[in-house]
């Protein structure tokens, strides 16, 4: 998602404005005149200045603008699927546990990226086992266990 400099600049200008508005709405509380809004206001001012510079640069370069890189729609879908997989982990892992969540998700991502099914099954199982061993067993990270009848999977 490559935006021309002027569009990017305008977008960031809006973000800087929103951030400044939120900063101004902060309740005071610091001693003297330097409350919690001072530093955020400095940040939003500098962001606005840099964004304006991008807008002017973008407008000047409009005529000479090069074509943005074209991405295959399939690649965008794959990128979205990766993000969806991470979101799924956030919500599913506390319920199903580490191994039962990661292994199928890893398998699905492998398949989506064109890995042969037999290889995908093998690597998904091995990688899940290895990562659970490293983090769960050796580094003692309390990875989610999932339902009690599936705890045998947590080696």
């Amino acid at each position: 998602m490559r935006l021309p400099d002027d569009v990017l600049g305008m977008l960031l200008l809006v973000v800087a404005g929103g951030y400044a508005a939120m900063a101004l709405a902060l309740p005071g509380g610091a001693p003297g005149d330097y409350g919690p809004e001072v530093f955020p206001l400095l940040i939003s001012t500098l962001t606005a200045a840099a964004s304006l510079s991008l807008v002017f640069r973008g407008l000047r370069a409009r005529r000479a603008a090069s074509m943005p890189a074209v991405r295959e729609p399939r690649n965008w879908l794959q990128g979205a699927a990766i993000c969806a997989a991470i979101l799924a982990v956030v919500f599913v892992m506390p319920i199903l546990g580490f191994a039962l969540t990661i292994c199928p998700i890893l398998f699905l991502i492998f398949c989506m990226l064109g890995v042969r099914i037999r290889v995908a099954v093998l690597i998904s199982i091995l990688a899940t086992f290895a990562i659970q061993l490293i983090f769960g067993t050796y580094l003692l990270v309390p990875l989610p266990n999932g339902p009690s009848f599936l705890r045998w999977m947590n080696f």
């Binding site: 990766i82 997989a85 506390p94 064109g114 890995v115 990688a127 990875l143």
Partner: peptide
């Protein structure tokens, strides 16, 4: 890369989880 990237992704997920033990 199509084998490496998903494994890196799972390392990232587990690493981010482990940094505070929370989703």
């Amino acid at each position: 890369r199509n084998v490496l990237m998903p494994i890196i992704l799972v390392f990232c997920i587990t690493g981010a989880y482990a940094s505070n033990n929370g989703m």
